[in-house]
Computed example of a mutant assay.
Amino acid sequence: MTETTIGPKRILICEDDPMTQMALQQVLKEHQLKPVESGEQAIEAAEGFAPELVIMDINLPGIDGYETCRTLRGMDSAHNAQVIFLSSYNSLQDRLLAYGVGGNDYIAKPFDNRELLSKIELHGGIVERHQAAWRSVEESTQLLLQVQTSAGNVQSVSRFIQATLFCHDFDSLYWHFFKTAREIELDCILQISTQDYLDTRSVTGNISNLEQEILDMSSTMGRIHQFGQHRAIYRWSTATLLVRRVGDLIDILALLMDALEAGIKKICTETQLMHQVAQIQESNELMRKRVAEQFATMVTEIQDTIISLGLVDALDEEEEERLAHMVEQTREQIDGELDSLNHNNETVRQLIEELRKPPPELQEMMNASADEEETGDMMFF
């Protein structure tokens, strides 16, 4: 007897002759064996045993080996098993029948131990290569799924980065962040904190007291802090993210937080700029009123001076009209300068509003999002 080089295999032995059964078990004792005496028993045993190899007699009580093999080939637990027929029938017709029902090899009785072991090693090697191929397929499939998931996550984050450029308040920024979180299957709580704003919201709407306390006390933590089995805290200057299950998103969430931080700073800058524009416009209106009042006072004083100097009678009608025209012209020039200041403010305001307008495809998405909010199809916390 020669030693096999393959690892132990699950071998189903279907043989009704006790002496042959005993001999097979002795020769194959290095393997995990399941001996049965009929085709019906073989079919029943295969369901739980999931054999890798089958040694099949042809002449069996009940259904014969051919029918048993045909049935095994239709079972999930045995359809990939290597079937070796072992029979005293030795004709070409018998071998053709064995091959036709799904047999992989044929040994004539009485069998030679070396031939049996050689074929067990041959077909055991086929089983191992087949299993390795399936593992490779499964690994490749898993890798492909991971690549597809990663690509999908990157695409979602990319859309969020684009959306942050056109969010003009924190509500819309929260909405787009949580929309992205749902797309990448991220269960999280987000806190936005600026000099004039503080709010904490959850993608699910639920925030426990402990979670709120952790957020409130997280100022001493580093930029990214992982704890427990799946949890993490991302702490940027104006945003803190508590992740309930981080999974494989540890790196992509840093990119998401960078985009969020940029969106927050943009909103703050725009808000300050619009506030300054409004203040300048209000100041211009006050200036207009003061200049108008001072100009009216100046005209009155000029008129009073002319009267007091007795120059009224010295001016003819044409000179009076010329003087009145000069006064009115000066008033119009002053009004024009003030109008130009307001025009500059309006130009700045319009420029800001133009920068806030998203491209058509993003605007369409935002409109769809608004419709979902109104119909209740998507919750916003």
Results as ranks from 00 to 15, higher is better:
residue 200 T to R: 10
residue 34 K to N: 01
residue 161 I to C: 07
residue 81 A to K: 01
residue 299 V to F: 11
residue 61 P to N: 09
residue 187 D to P: 12
residue 38 S to V: 03
residue 242 L to D: 07
residue 221 M to Q: 12
residue 94 D to Q: 07
residue 260 L to W: 06
residue 89 Y to C: 06
residue 120 I to A: 02
residue 366 M to H: 06
residue 163 A to V: 13
residue 186 L to G: 04
residue 319 E to G: 07
residue 264 I to C: 00
residue 74 G to F: 11
residue 193 S to I: 01
residue 145 L to D: 14
residue 270 E to P: 04
residue 258 D to T: 13
residue 145 L to S: 14
residue 302 I to H: 08
residue 189 I to E: 06
residue 349 R to M: 04
residue 146 Q to H: 09
residue 95 R to L: 06
residue 313 D to V: 11
residue 260 L to D: 00
residue 71 T to D: 02
residue 50 A to G: 04
residue 77 S to F: 09
residue 131 Q to N: 11
residue 150 S to Y: 09
residue 163 A to L: 11
residue 355 L to N: 10
residue 137 V to A: 07
residue 152 G to W: 13
residue 291 V to G: 01
residue 370 A to E: 15
residue 198 L to K: 12
residue 244 R to A: 01
residue 17 D to H: 03
residue 347 T to V: 08
residue 41 Q to G: 09
residue 241 L to F: 02
residue 190 L to T: 03
residue 279 Q to A: 07
residue 37 E to K: 12
residue 205 G to L: 00
residue 261 E to K: 05
residue 283 S to L: 12
residue 358 P to K: 11
residue 47 E to A: 08
residue 119 K to Y: 02
residue 349 R to Q: 00
residue 121 E to L: 02
residue 53 L to C: 02
residue 70 R to T: 03
residue 295 F to D: 02
residue 64 D to M: 01
residue 347 T to G: 06
residue 192 I to N: 10
residue 119 K to E: 03
residue 95 R to C: 02
residue 158 S to F: 12
residue 230 H to V: 04
residue 155 Q to V: 13
residue 175 W to G: 12
residue 120 I to C: 01
residue 152 G to A: 14
residue 264 I to T: 00
residue 276 Q to S: 14
residue 135 R to G: 05
residue 349 R to A: 06
residue 304 D to A: 13
residue 334 I to A: 13
residue 140 S to R: 14
residue 71 T to M: 09
residue 207 I to F: 03
residue 369 S to G: 12
residue 300 T to F: 04
residue 300 T to M: 12
residue 251 D to C: 08
residue 23 A to R: 14
residue 284 N to D: 14
residue 316 D to T: 06
residue 232 A to Q: 00
residue 215 L to P: 04
residue 82 Q to D: 01
residue 307 I to G: 03
residue 1 M to R: 14
residue 141 T to A: 15
residue 329 Q to T: 13
residue 344 N to W: 07
residue 23 A to S: 15
residue 58 I to H: 02
residue 201 R to S: 13
residue 51 P to D: 03
residue 152 G to K: 13
residue 353 E to K: 11
residue 180 T to A: 07
residue 41 Q to C: 06
residue 195 Q to N: 09
residue 259 A to K: 10
residue 78 A to H: 06
residue 176 H to D: 15
residue 247 G to Q: 15
residue 281 Q to D: 07
residue 160 F to P: 02
residue 365 M to K: 12
residue 311 L to K: 15
residue 258 D to A: 11
residue 209 N to Q: 09
residue 162 Q to P: 00
residue 240 T to M: 04
residue 373 E to A: 14
residue 278 A to T: 14
residue 277 V to L: 15
residue 37 E to I: 10
residue 103 G to N: 05
residue 51 P to V: 01
residue 169 D to G: 05
residue 247 G to K: 14
residue 187 D to N: 15
residue 376 G to Y: 06
residue 226 Q to L: 10
residue 236 W to G: 01
residue 245 R to G: 06
residue 322 R to N: 11
residue 38 S to Q: 10
residue 7 G to K: 03
residue 92 L to K: 10
residue 372 E to I: 08
residue 154 V to T: 03
residue 318 E to I: 12
residue 347 T to N: 09
residue 72 L to A: 06
residue 40 E to S: 07
residue 162 Q to I: 04
residue 351 L to S: 11
residue 200 T to Y: 05
residue 52 E to C: 00
residue 294 Q to K: 14
residue 216 D to Q: 15
residue 337 E to A: 12
residue 154 V to Y: 10
residue 57 D to M: 05
residue 193 S to Y: 02
residue 281 Q to C: 05
